[in-house]
Amino acid sequence: MEAGIDDPLSVLAPLLRVRPILDDLCRFGGDWAAPHDAAGPGWAHFHIVTRGECLLDRPGHGALRLGVGDVLLLPHGDPHVVRARAGSGGGRRAPVVEYRNAIRIKMSPGVEADTELVCGRLHFEAAPQSLIVAVLPEVVVLRATDRHHAMLEGIRDELDIDAAGAAAIATDLASALFMMMLRAHLEAAGTSSGVLRLLGQPVTSRAMMAMLREPARDWSLEELAERAISSRATLVRAFRATSGLAPLAFLTEVRLGLARQQLLGGRATIAQIAADVGYQSEAALSRAFHRHYGVRPGALRALGTG
């Protein structure tokens, strides 16, 4: 049996090549708000609530409540605001900032902290080639469970002490926590996206990886079948059985997912994005994008930066 076929998540891990960066340990109280800009291509935002509770606001969406032990991931690095559950905002003041173990400590001035967050970014080092990034939802939340409580405590404790290597240890723990989070999400989602099943079969896996490495290439079914070491008919049957899509339709899903990621997180022009993901013109991308998402690329970008 080909390596990893019996455990698709083992194949998933090296594809993600995740590198977490712990930016802030936030200790907030009273009426507070912490805005976050778009993270940039290949980057995701994350927040770990180690004490108290808060709300997350995103443009065009209702507030999402987070409680102690919750881990939130924004896989596409969307702009957002994390804030206190109550308060008008009139009494907000800029946080006091100090540094410890290469981590910023942010504190609400003149008020006792009742909420604590570990905030950072995840770098998907294979992005934008990673299909997993493209097909993940806008928000993934790992709710508090006993299984990851000790790991959360370990991250918090390491960031709270002034000892050699504390930041590196906390980062390693965060990396493991994120893989647990992805596993929980993908297992809960089952095979609805087809990603795990595509990775779990040699024929579809080889074709899928070819698409990811060169999404802008003008792939033909014959070329994909050659890369998959199969006949065209076998490849089509395998893709339809696994993802519900024909190979070239799946390629469209990949291209549009990558385009969306760049629109929300990057500065490239829409024309450049179109070329990067395999569309001959900005207009061609716009038509396909609107059919798929119900919004034009320019409108999506304006929403993400508004």
Rank of each mutant, 00 (worst) to 15 (best):
G4H: 09
L72H: 05
H292I: 11
L256I: 06
A299M: 11
G165E: 14
I5Q: 03
S175H: 08
R183S: 04
G265H: 12
R147I: 03
A134C: 07
S130T: 13
T242I: 03
Q201F: 05
E214L: 12
A63D: 09
Y293R: 15
L186V: 02
P128Y: 05
S10Y: 07
L245P: 01
A216P: 14
E282S: 01
G244N: 12
S88C: 13
V68Y: 01
R301V: 04
H149Y: 09
L25C: 13
A302E: 05
G265V: 07
A274M: 07
Q129D: 06
F46A: 04
I161H: 08
G69C: 06
G4M: 11
R255K: 12
A144S: 15
Y293G: 11
Q272T: 04
P75R: 00
E112R: 09
L177Q: 00
R27K: 02
G89L: 08
G190V: 06
A228M: 06
R217E: 03
V135W: 13
S220C: 00
V277M: 07
S130C: 12
I132W: 09
A225G: 13
L303T: 01
G278I: 03
G52H: 02
D146V: 11
L221T: 01
C54M: 11
A13H: 06
R232E: 15
H290V: 10
T252S: 03
H36W: 07
A84R: 02
E138I: 13
I105P: 07
Y99G: 01
G90R: 12
R232I: 09
E158D: 10
C54I: 02
K106L: 15
E112Q: 09
L264H: 05
T191H: 14
A188G: 04
M151N: 01
I273R: 00
G120H: 03
A176R: 11
M181A: 13
Q129Y: 04
A189P: 14
G120Y: 05
Y99M: 11
R240G: 04
I229S: 13
H45N: 10
L245G: 02
F124D: 03
R287G: 07
A44R: 04
A238Y: 04
M1F: 13
Q129M: 03
R85I: 00
L15M: 11
G266H: 01
A284V: 01
V82S: 10
H148V: 10
D78P: 15
P41H: 09
W43A: 05
A184E: 15
L256M: 05
L72W: 12
R296G: 14
V135A: 12
E226L: 00
S130I: 10
G154E: 09
R58E: 14
R17A: 14
Q272M: 08
P8L: 12
A164M: 10
E214N: 14
A288C: 08
L12T: 06
I270E: 06
P59N: 06
A189D: 15
D172T: 09
L9F: 15
R217F: 07
R227T: 04
Q262Y: 08
L9R: 12
H45Q: 11
